[in-house]
Design a protein around this nucleic acid. Sequence first.
RNA 1: UCCGGAGUAGCUCAGUUGGCAGAGCGGGUGACUGUUAAUCACUUGGUCGUAGGUUCGAGUCCUACCUCCGGAGCCA
Length: 487
Amino acid sequence: MQQTAKRTRVVDILNTDNIGQTLTVKGWVRFFRQNRFLLLNDGSTIHNIQVVVDYESFDEALIKKLTTGAAVSATGQVVESQGSGQAVEILAETLELLGEAHPDQVQTTILQPKAHTLETLREQAHLRFRTNTFGAVFRIRHALAFAVHQYFNERGYYNLHTPIITASDAEGAGEMFQVTTLSLDAPPRTEEGGIDYGEDFFGKETSLTVSGQLEAELAAMALGQVYTFGPTFRAENSNTSRHLAEFWMIEPEVAFNDLRDNMDLGEDFLKYCVKYATDHCVDDLAFLHERETKAESQLPKAQRNEMPLLERLAFVVNNEFERLTYTEAVDVLRNSKPYKKNKFEYPIEWGIDLQSEHERYLVEKHFMKPVILVDYPAAIKAFYMRLNDPDEQGRETVAAMDILFPGVGEIMGGSQREERLDVLQQRCAAFDIPAKEMDWYLDTRRFGTAVHAGFGLGFERLMMFVTGMTNIRDVIPFPRAPKSAEF
RNA sequence: UCCGGAGUAGCUCAGUUGGCAGAGCGGGUGACUGUUAAUCACUUGGUCGUAGGUUCGAGUCCUACCUCCGGAGCCA
């Protein structure tokens, strides 16, 4: 068997002292300048390794094929660079073309060596991994996913795999994608003429999950503290830069936690994840920081961020989130300048939900930091949230919490759960949820019920905040959105 | 889904009052050879989003539709 050289990753060549050693690097050509300087990237870091090619020592036909996008293996001595742009470089002794990239074909893709808009890159999502920006984004995505598991593991939480296919349509978290093996042309019919789901694969109507929360509650009431981290599907016709039809959600659920514990957990968890990224993704974040700063220098001041990316991240890690009740938030808003000057488009009144413009004012103008809003009116929140005692004016609220982040909006939503069987049954009735179908859920309140709480964190929303990317479609490898399921 | 904007070369864009389809980048060929998104010369490149309509003549005006972007709603 032929011995092929073991490759050294670019990140390891750049970060350890290898001067004088002969190493093999394998990667994809970013640039080949002057028939002499071959810049290879292997995805291990945002930085390229410069391979110096003495073009007179190699076959001209080979040199011609060292084009942008080609896969190449290069072996040679690591030396200090004569040029100023890099510390070390490799003097090529052998060069092997692993995979050609024909320039006339490369020219029709985003692999061509020039700047592209994010929209164009999105149209070739299968190739955008090769760019600096998306290389950085997806290395950070890995780091954040790892941080999520590490955070919970270090604290004794159990990762729970909740079902992706569900028959529960009572979660109330939005439109669902139906899952069926029935013929769409001629589905079996009941005697009344409706579709006979008894004939369907599961013998009932099923959909893709919109939340693992209800199932997570069952596990939490036995294992104590669990978390889910899985795909979530919403069939809403949402055409925004903050919504996806398929996204990843983290949902911890903790027995014996009340709303305050839940807030503490949410804040601590977010800070941990952001800190993990700033500690472990230094080069990638520095690149994204520069990228954003350059892009913003073209914008009018009003459209720029108050702080550059790295400062925003440090700020979140180092400052307490502002905590206040919905009722207090309404007071703040009604006493605000934009309210008094009639600048808000939507009314602010106790009992109606806050609009984006109100949340943005609180986070970005008034408090200038992440905000946790709690105790929302019961009528505008989900049935499973714990009913608080009525306030002095007799108004009913639930122990809900939303964490609002600058630029991203609602990054996290959670609550203390209603643990009292009779109250929960009343709430089901008020929301027209058939109690019979929810029996499996209500059973937790029959057999040793206890205070418990949890939240849902949109992983891509966290990604947006950490990377500074402003469109959620640019922080997930293959975005699914209305009219969009390419690749 | 609603409001606003956009769609012209592989990419980023210009295109005047309705009158011959343009530039830069990229690609090709050559020169150069310690470059840093190298440089220089030459060259290549078009279903003007789609379908209709108005007009002697439409990238430009009108209608419908599609897609994308920004904002809103729904939410994470």
